[in-house]
Each structure stands twice: as structure tokens, then as C-alpha cells.
Computed example of a mutant assay.
Amino acid sequence: MTSTLQVDPSNAEQASTWDGKEGGYWAEHADQFDLALRGYRTPFLAAAGIAAGDQVLDIGCGTGETTRDAARRASRGRALGVDLSDAMLRVARQRAAAEGLHNAAFVHADAQVHPFPAAAFDVAVSRTGTMFFADPVAAFRNICGALRPGGRLVQLVWQPPAGNEWFLSFTNALAAGRPLPAPAPDAPGPFSLADPERVRAVLGAAGFTGIQFEPHSEAMWFGEDADGAHRFTLGLLGWMLDGLDDEGQRRAVDNLRATITAHGVLYASATWTIMATRS
């Protein structure tokens, strides 16, 4: 992790993860991650409703596809992407520069504590980037303060695991017969904002009103073929092999290959597009 990154102490573990090996993997496979979520791109941008003069904040921007999309729409405004991963931000900057998007900028920052200028943005967006805050009320309150009164928050998050075949299939395979402990419902993770009631409580406490949920389902694409999908998914979830002996690791890897070979490279997924307004 770089020495210049100001991180809330409660987010130290997340910063270590995303500004380390995991963020590096996402940076190396930027195209694959963007393609996996491609089905959500058009409806999410439609929900964001970015106008030509808007000032846009992209939370957890990763390698910057959504920031670049926002910058193209906010042609007389600007788009600022923030993320914990320096490696992903390097990719984001390179791609924005290659496209000549001079109104796109990126900051290496923890959105939970970063000193955003007050009331500077018309809309804040996030494509699967808001589920990892250790203190989500504090994080969303900070984001709320960066929005002008009446400014909008539009975020894409996962619905519960039952609607996400990709997650259940891959994790069950790599569990190799082990019972996997369920994370605490308020712990940072991909499903921390899956419960609408919890989200309403969090966003309400942070200063948002008019909270709405729009369900959406799309197939996620994990590779050109089974071998490619296996390599990509094993790189993404290989941490699940920790604690297994050699035989257990072989069984888990074989399980993953078997489920992808039998199923194919498209898996069902389900998200919420959550829209809210700064009061």
C-alpha cells in the first residue's frame, strides 16, 4: 500500500487487499472484469442519467470503465474516479488518456474519509464498488456531503447469493466439501448491501432520502471457453484454497473445472440499482 493513501483505520484490511495482490489481479484482467459485467452497463448508465454539464463522482472506480462512460456523457463537466487500488488506477489513467478524455481524473483514496470538496458533485455513481466499507454509514455520509443538495447517488450492488449462480457455483466447488462460515451481515463483502432494509437504514442515517431499488438480472461471462474461465475464476478465488492440504486443493481445483465444463461460461446474476437523493 502506498504511503500517501489516507485510510480510515477500520478500512485497513480492505486497503491492504485492494491495494495489494487482489487489486493487481483486477488491474491485470481489466477487460475480463468489464466484460463480465457488460450486461449491466446500459441500464446502469440510464439510471445514472448523467447530463452534459454534470460533475460526477465514481466510487470504487477500479480500472475506470464507468468513470470513462461518465466523462463521455458529462462532456461539459467532469468525472472523478476514486479507488483504493493504485494498480487499477494506473490502468484507469492510461485508458482515459488513450481515449482523450481530459475531463476524467482519478484519485487514490478511501472514500470513507477522503476530504472531498463540499457540495461539489451532481451525481455519485458506483458499479459494485460500495459494498466494502467497514463503516458504511460514515462512508455514505462522506459521499453525501460531496453532493450538492438534491444530488443523486446511483449504485449497482449484488442481490443476495441465492440469485447469483456464479457465486454459489464457484464457491461451492472450491469449498471442496468444507462448510463455509457465513459472513456477518454487516461485514464488508460483495453482499453487504444486498438487504434493502439494511440499505435503507444505512443511507437514511447518512443523509439520503428517496431511496429506490430497481432489480436487474443478466448473464455474466467468465471467458471464451471453459479453460479460460477456469483460469480466470481460479485467479479470482484462489484464496479459498488456503487451509486445504494438497489433496483438498486438487479436489477443489478439479471441482471448479468440472462445474465450468458442465455449465459453460455464462452464469446467472442479480443486482440492485439503488437510487437515492441528498436531502
Rank of each mutant, 00 (worst) to 15 (best):
1 M>W: 07
2 T>F: 10
3 S>Y: 14
4 T>P: 15
5 L>N: 01
7 V>I: 08
9 P>N: 03
11 N>V: 07
12 A>Q: 14
13 E>W: 14
18 W>C: 01
21 K>Y: 07
22 E>W: 09
23 G>V: 00
24 G>I: 01
25 Y>T: 03
26 W>M: 05
27 A>F: 01
28 E>H: 04
28 E>K: 05
29 H>D: 00
29 H>R: 06
30 A>L: 02
31 D>N: 01
34 D>Y: 05
38 R>V: 09
42 T>G: 12
45 L>A: 05
46 A>S: 12
46 A>P: 08
49 G>H: 07
50 I>P: 09
50 I>N: 11
50 I>Q: 10
54 D>S: 14
55 Q>H: 11
55 Q>E: 11
57 L>A: 06
58 D>M: 05
68 R>Y: 01
69 D>S: 14
76 R>D: 12
78 R>W: 12
79 A>R: 00
81 G>N: 02
81 G>V: 02
84 L>A: 07
87 A>D: 03
90 R>T: 12
90 R>L: 12
98 A>Q: 07
99 E>M: 06
99 E>Q: 13
100 G>Y: 08
100 G>A: 05
101 L>W: 13
102 H>K: 15
110 D>K: 09
113 V>Y: 06
117 P>I: 11
119 A>E: 13
119 A>H: 13
120 A>Y: 00
121 F>S: 05
121 F>V: 02
123 V>A: 05
123 V>M: 07
124 A>T: 02
126 S>F: 02
126 S>R: 00
129 G>V: 02
131 M>W: 09
133 F>Q: 08
135 D>W: 08
138 A>D: 10
138 A>N: 08
140 F>E: 10
140 F>M: 11
143 I>V: 15
149 P>M: 11
150 G>Q: 10
154 V>M: 06
154 V>A: 04
159 Q>Y: 05
163 G>V: 03
164 N>F: 11
167 F>S: 15
168 L>R: 15
170 F>P: 11
173 A>R: 09
174 L>N: 06
175 A>E: 03
175 A>R: 04
175 A>L: 02
176 A>I: 08
176 A>V: 08
178 R>D: 06
179 P>I: 04
180 L>E: 09
183 P>C: 06
183 P>E: 07
184 A>M: 12
186 D>P: 07
186 D>L: 06
191 F>D: 01
193 L>Y: 07
194 A>I: 02
194 A>E: 01
195 D>S: 02
197 E>K: 09
197 E>Y: 09
200 R>T: 13
201 A>P: 13
208 F>D: 01
213 F>Y: 06
216 H>G: 14
216 H>V: 13
220 M>I: 03
225 D>T: 03
230 H>G: 08
232 F>T: 03
233 T>C: 13
234 L>A: 04
238 G>W: 07
239 W>F: 15
240 M>G: 03
242 D>C: 13
243 G>F: 00
244 L>I: 04
245 D>A: 11
247 E>K: 13
249 Q>R: 15
249 Q>D: 10
253 V>L: 07
254 D>P: 15
257 R>S: 11
258 A>D: 15
260 I>P: 01
261 T>D: 14
261 T>Q: 14
262 A>C: 03
268 A>N: 15
273 T>G: 10
277 T>L: 12
